[in-house]
């Protein structure tokens, strides 16, 4: 039996802005099993990062969770106090972002920062059998060796700007995996890297994920990265997950018209294809279209699509939100 580690239920998040209320997430449902990598894909503004930030409870000031639950190992993360969450964040759930600069402080060495991060988790590690927090140096060195960092001792003494983009992202991986969390949220971790370096970083991430049996939500707009890294994939559109299933199934036979459109719009490096664009643009989430939010761009749109938003349908293990399947 698969062990469910995360379950997001009907999550709705709004941003309150001068333009009005941005309905960023409109009922997101998601689950993740232990040791699985889930790819979260979709175009800019579809809600990938907001989903990740909600789980991490790092939403900006002007955002509100207006509805929904996020169960992590059976507890609703939205119901616990900040103090309780602090025992989880970093230790049980960790994050990697696209730009390491938002996380690494330029005026401290890697060692100073890594140490501080570990020390701040002291309380959550009091009863850990796996990690002895007193052996700080050992933890840091082994974490950096885990990510195949050359010259670990030298790197520890360096400042972030002295490291190349790929090396910085390895440091982020080392920090994220150092306390062997159960869940890692990686938001576009390799988007800023060149392909040969992206390949190195993804390889290391997969290796560590297998080694520690970590569950990972990999946020990316690159379907190629998902095909090569993930077991499951969720396709987001306008704040909802419109299709969810096994990577092998969804890529071979996409069901949702938006997923189909995305796949057909991709030029490929390995074979010659004729690409087809999706007409129109992503909707404004202050006043989203009625019914199915994809209907203005959908080649299969029917009368009902304008009036009624589709409910999730299940086709074997696959979830799809589209009137064609209900």
């Amino acid at each position: 039996m698969d062990e469910k580690i995360l379950e997001v239920k009907n999550l709705r998040v709004n941003f309150y802005t001068y333009r009005g209320v941005v309905k960023a997430l409109n009922g997101v449902n998601l689950d993740l099993n232990k040791g699985e990598i889930l790819g979260l894909a979709g175009e800019t503004g579809s809600g990938k990062s907001v989903t990740g930030l909600s789980i991490l409870r790092l939403l900006p000031q002007n955002a509100r969770v207006v509805e929904g639950e996020i169960f992590f190992k059976g507890r609703d993360l939205l119901k616990i106090s900040e103090k309780e969450y602090n025992l989880i964040r970093g230790k049980e759930i960790n994050a990697i972002f696209q730009d390491p600069h938002t996380y690494l402080n330029p005026v401290f060495t890697i060692k100073e920062q890594f140490k501080d991060i570990l020390l701040s988790k002291k309380d959550s590690l009091k009863n850990s059998s796996k990690i002895d927090i007193k052996k700080l140096d050992e933890i840091m060195v082994s974490a950096l060796k885990d990510v195949k960092m050359p010259a670990v001792d030298r790197v520890l003494r360096m400042y972030p700007h002295e490291l190349s983009g790929g090396m910085k992202q390895r440091v982020m991986l080392a920090i994220a995996f150092s306390l062997q969390p159960s869940l890692i949220i990686a938001d576009e971790p390799t988007t800023a890297l060149d392909v040969t370096i992206q390949a190195q970083v993804l390889e290391i991430m997969k290796e560590l994920q297998r080694k520690y049996n970590t569950s990972v939500i990999l946020i990316t707009h690159d379907l190629g990265v998902i095909a090569e890294t993930c077991q499951k994939v969720a396709i987001m559109y306008a704040g909802r997950i419109v299709e969810y299933g096994r990577v092998s199934e969804v890529f071979r036979n996409p069901l949702h018209p938006y997923t189909k459109g995305l796949m057909e719009a991709l030029p490929r490096a390995d074979i010659d294809v004729k690409v087809k664009s999706i007409p129109g643009t992503v909707p404004d989430l202050v006043s989203p279209p009625s019914g199915c939010t994809f209907h203005p761009r959908c080649p299969y749109a029917m009368e009902i699509c304008k009036r009624q938003s589709p409910r999730p349908s299940y086709v074997k293990e696959r979830m799809v939100e589209c009137h064609l399947y209900s």
């Binding site: 392909v195 040969t196 992206q198 390949a199 190195q200 993804l202 390889e203 690159d222 379907l223 190629g224 990265v225 998902i226 095909a227 090569e228 890294t229 990577v247 092998s248 890529f251 071979r252 796949m263 991709l266 490929r268 490096a269 390995d270």
Partner: peptide, 17 residues
């Protein structure tokens, strides 16, 4: 060429990292 991720899980590339 071998580092570009291919959006097809059935394509098995020989890795050349």
């Amino acid at each position: 060429l071998k580092s570009v991720p291919i959006p097809d899980p059935e394509v098995k590339k020989d890795k050349f990292l």
